[in-house]
Design a protein around this nucleic acid. Structure first.
Lengths: 323, 323
DNA sequence: TTGAAAGCGCTAACAC
DNA sequence: GTGTTAGCGCTTTCAA
C-alpha cells in the first residue's frame, strides 16, 4: 500500500479511501491510484484491515464433515451470503477434540460468531468466548453446559409421523433401528418410538434397537426383529446411515417389509421400491440458524431462543407395503 | 496480551514466549503467566500473529460446493492436516465470478496457496498472485491461461475401460450421454468415446450425445439412442449427474440395457441392478494435490508438473447385461 | 533469561 | 478533498 501511495504520489490514507470506495476522492487522483494498484498488483490485506477496524463479517461453521453432502451447511452458506457475511467451514469429524480445535481456531481468527453442530458433551469452554461477545448458534443437537440459540428438528414429531403412517396401513408389529442413545438425536428418536408403541398399546420389549452405526450390530438387530412368527412387518430407521445399512442388510428382501427412513437423500427415489422417508427441514434449519445469529449480533443481551423445525413425510413406496 | 502482561507483572515479550512455547522462560514466571492467561480468558489473535510473522500455514480450497459430498476435498483436508496445514474451504458454485471472488478473498487473507477446481475460462488473473509467491494447484480440470501444477483423472483411459468392458460382452451398438463439451471433462470423455467407436470400426453418427445436464435434454438423447431396430444395447454415461438423470429417465427399463457410469457414488450398490462404474481415484487426486502444493512451497521455481491419476472399473451388475 | 522498541498493513480520528 | 498521526495485537531485533 505504501508502494501504491508512492507510485501515485499521494498519501496512504488516500489509497485507503479509493480501495474502500470512499467517494470523497478527486476523479483524477482516484484514476491515478487505480492505475498504480493494477500495475503493482496490489491486494489489500484483509487481516490488517480487520485488525484495525474491529468487525470481521465472517462466520465460522463447525460441521461434521465439510466434504460430505450437508444441506444445512448449504442453506447457511446461501443465507449468510445474502446477508453479506462470509462463511468459512471447518470439519469436526464428530470428534470432541477436533470440535474444540475448530472453535478455538475460529476464535483466534476473531470471527463474529460460529454456527455449530455440537458433538462434545460439555461446551462450557464456549462460555468465556460468549462473554467476550462471540455469537454462537447450535443446530441439529443442543449444546450442553452453555445457553445458546439453538435450531432443532422436531425429532419426536418425525418419528410420530413415520409410526402413524405405518399403523394407518394396519401394521401392528413395527420395529425401530437407530443411532446410539448417547447421541441426542438417537435418544430423542428412540424415546419417541417407544412412546408411540405404548400409546398404541403395543409391546415395546425387543422392538427398539438403538446402538452404534455398525453393519454387524445393525444386521443382528434386523435379524432379531424379523425372526419368528412375531417378526415385524414394518420398520422405522432412525437416520440416513442406519437406513442405508438396513437396506444393504436386507439385500433382495428390501421391499418385502414396509420401511420408513428418517432423513431424505438425493437418490432415495431411484431405489426399488422408492424409499419413503421423514425429511428434515434442512434449508429451514440453516436459514433459521443465520437469522438467530444475526439477531444475536444485533442485540447480544437478548434472551436465548430455541427453534424447532418440523419434519415432513415423503411417500415413495417402501413405506406402503401391506402387513 | 497487554492485560496478561500487566496481570502477571512481566513484559509483553515474555507472554509471547510462553504462548509460543519458547523454552527460555523461567518456570515460575511461566506458571504465573499461564494463570493470568486462564483468568483473563486470553486467546491469541491469529491475524496479528500472521501479520507480523509472515507465513500463515493455511491453504484455501476453492471447490464447486462445500456442502456437497466431495471425496477429493476430504483427501485434501486429511492430507493437509497431517502436514500441519489448515484447510479453509469456499464454494465457487461453478460460477466464474464466484470463483474469482473466492480466490481473491483467499489472497486477501494471504494464504500460502490455493487448491482449485477451475471453472472460469481464463485464469490469467492468477498470474500476478503467482508471481507474488502464491502456490496454486488445479485439479479435475486444467486452469487456462496460466501454468500451474495440475492433477487430472485419466478421463480418456476411463472411457476406454467402460467401452472395452461393454464391447468384450459382445455389445456393438453402444451410446454415450455426457456433459457439455465446453467443459473440459465433458470434452475429453466425449472425444475418447468417439475414438473408441472409430477404433472398433463402429459408426459414430448419432451415438455420442454431449450437452448440458438437463432432464429434458438427457431424456431426448436417451430416446434417440434407443429408438428403432438399430437402438443401442449398451450405454456409457459421462458423469454422476448424467448417470442419475439417465436412470431416472429409464424408470422401470433400468436393467434392460447395459449401463456403465463415469464416477462412483455411495449408494451405487443399492440400485437394482447394482451400478457398474468407472471410479476416479479421488483420494489419490487429493493427496497428490497437497504433495504438489508442498513441493511448490518448498521450491517456488521448480518446473510445473501435471499428474494423471488412473481410474478403475467397478463391476456391480448394470454393465454386465447381455446385448 | 528477560525487556524495550520498532513495525507488520491497514483504518479511525482529526487536522488542513 | 486530502494529509498526518496513532494504534489494532502481535513478533522480531537487539540490548541488558
Amino acid at each position: 500500500m505504501v508502494d501504491v501511495a508512492r507510485e501515485a504520489g499521494v498519501a496512504l490514507r488516500t489509497v485507503s479511501r479509493v480501495v474502500n470506495g470512499d467517494a470523497t476522492v478527486g476523479d483524477e487522483l482516484a484514476a491515478r491510484i487505480r492505475t498504480a494498484i493494477d500495475r503493482l498488483g496490489y491486494r489489500p490485506d484483509v487481516r490488517a484491515r480487520q485488525l484495525r477496524s474491529g468487525r470481521t463479517g465472517t462466520i465460522g461453521a463447525a460441521v461434521r464433515h465439510i466434504a460430505d453432502a450437508h444441506p444445512v451447511l448449504r442453506a447457511v452458506d446461501e443465507t449468510a451470503r445474502e446477508a453479506g457475511l462470509t462463511v468459512v467451514a471447518m470439519s469436526t469429524e464428530d470428534d470432541p477434540e477436533r470440535e474444540r480445535e475448530a472453535v478455538m481456531s475460529m476464535c483466534g481468527r476473531r470471527m463474529d460468531g460460529i454456527v455449530i453442530e455440537p458433538i462434545a458433551d460439555g461446551h462450557q469452554y464456549l462460555q468465556p468466548e460468549i462473554d467476550n461477545g462471540l455469537a454462537v448458534v447450535a443446530f441439529d443437537r443442543p449444546a450442553t453446559g452453555v445457553e445458546v440459540d439453538t435450531v432443532l428438528s422436531d425429532n419426536r414429531g418425525g418419528i410420530r409421523q413415520a409410526f402413524a403412517h405405518l399403523a394407518a396401513q394396519g401394521h401392528r408389529r413395527i420395529g425401530y433401528i437407530g443411532d446410539d442413545e448417547r447421541i441426542y438425536t438417537g435418544h430423542e428418536r428412540a424415546a419417541a418410538f417407544r412412546h408411540c408403541l405404548r400409546e398404541a398399546g403395543l409391546p415395546v420389549e425387543g422392538r427398539v434397537h438403538p446402538g452404534p452405526i455398525d453393519d454387524r450390530r445393525i444386521g443382528a438387530a434386523l435379524e432379531s426383529l424379523r425372526r419368528g412368527p412375531e417378526g415385524v412387518t414394518a420398520l422405522v430407521t432412525g437416520n440416513f446411515s442406519t437406513t442405508v445399512a438396513v437396506i444393504r442388510a436386507l439385500g433382495p428382501d428390501f421391499g418385502s417389509l414396509a420401511l420408513v427412513g428418517f432423513d431424505d437423500f438425493g437418490l432415495a427415489d431411484l431405489l426399488r421400491p422408492g424409499l419413503t422417508v421423514v425429511a428434515q427441514g434442512e434449508r429451514e434449519i440453516g436459514r433459521t440458524a443465520i437469522e438467530l445469529f444475526r439477531a444475536r449480533l444485533a442485540e447480544p443481551a437478548r434472551p436465548v431462543r430455541t427453534v424447532i423445525v418440523t419434519t415432513s413425510l415423503i411417500v415413495r413406496g417402501s413405506g406402503e407395503i401391506a402387513p
